[in-house]
Simulated scan of single mutants.
Amino acid sequence: MASSLKWRCMSLALVVLALYTTQAMSRNLQELSMEDRHEQWMTNYGLVYKDSVEKEMRFQVFKTNVEYIDTFNKVGDRTYVLSVNGFADQTNEEFIASRNGYKNSPERKSGTAFRYENVTAVPSSMDWRKKGAVTPIKDQGQCGSCWAFSTVASMEGITQLSTGKLISLSEQELVDCDVNGEDQGCEGGLMDDAFDFIVQNHGLATEGTYPYKAIDGACDKKKEASHAA
């Protein structure tokens, strides 16, 4: 009787150990899979960390972000899906700090309200990409120049609507040359002041003439004078 009870206890212990081992192996495989994804992601974006400590810290951020993306996409009833991009090893706080350079001025300039003139049927929505008024996606990089990109995108759109020509214009010109008042290159700026700069400068150069570098630089007066729009 005692021997039978002993074998039952041993069998139960072996079952528990097997279950624990299986769960541990499953966790290890999941972790390894995520590590593989991180390594592949690093290769795709050409990233190299300074040491193992930074790599482990970035891996944990990457893991958290990827798990969120995977969970979000599994819901299935979204109008869009998320994907892993070049910012996957950054926290929300880091991403905002490095790219959100918008300076909300407490003294916003007043103006007349926009009104449609002689228009009776206004569509509920408009996709300006289909109208050919939007240039391809651009990347501001590690520079808080969102204000410049927003301003330039508006300029590109209105230029296309008024002339029929879609021209990629220069954000770097604003970063380098529009440095008075609120606008301070990669340290942030305000679209209102950028529009004033464009008016005073009589336009902007093209992206090809004054290419984007994602860093603060000295204003190139010759390129600045090459107005395209």
Rank of each mutant, 00 (worst) to 15 (best):
K222F: 04
T159H: 05
N65I: 04
L174D: 01
S145R: 05
L47Y: 15
E39P: 00
E93N: 09
Y212Q: 03
T135N: 12
Q40L: 09
T22G: 06
L17E: 06
T159D: 03
F59M: 08
Y20N: 08
A153V: 08
N104E: 08
K50N: 06
L17G: 06
K165Y: 05
N28F: 10
L17Q: 07
S226T: 13
L29A: 15
D89A: 12
M57F: 06
I215C: 04
A218P: 00
V75F: 12
T43I: 10
S125E: 12
R115W: 10
T159W: 00
L29W: 11
G46D: 13
L190N: 14
Q90W: 12
Q60I: 10
G208L: 11
R8H: 07
Y212D: 03
G111L: 08
E67G: 03
V175P: 01
V175Q: 00
M25E: 15
D127M: 11
K103Y: 13
T209R: 05
G189S: 08
A214M: 11
Y212C: 03
Y102A: 14
Q184A: 13
H38Y: 15
T159E: 04
Q160M: 09
K138A: 15
R129N: 12
V61E: 04
S150P: 04
Y49L: 02
M191G: 01
Y116W: 14
A88K: 00
T22Y: 14
S4P: 02
K103S: 05
K221H: 07
R99H: 15
N180D: 06
T151E: 09
E187V: 01
Q172I: 02
V81F: 12
T79Q: 11
V175L: 09
S26L: 08
D89T: 01
H227Q: 14
G144Q: 09
D220G: 08
K223P: 07
R27K: 07
T151P: 08
G185E: 00
G111R: 13
S145I: 13
H227E: 00
T79H: 09
A225T: 05
K165R: 14
E35T: 13
K130H: 06
F95P: 00
M1P: 07
D192G: 01
V175G: 02
W128Q: 06
K131C: 05
K165S: 14
Q160D: 07
E224L: 06
F197Y: 14
T43M: 08
M155N: 06
D70E: 10
A24C: 09
Y210S: 12
D193L: 07
D196E: 14
E182M: 07
T135R: 10
A225I: 03
D192T: 13
W41C: 06
V175R: 01
L47T: 12
F59P: 02
L5C: 09
V16F: 12
K55R: 13
D192F: 07
L29Y: 14
L47P: 00
Q160G: 05
P136C: 11
E187W: 03
I215Q: 12
A97C: 02
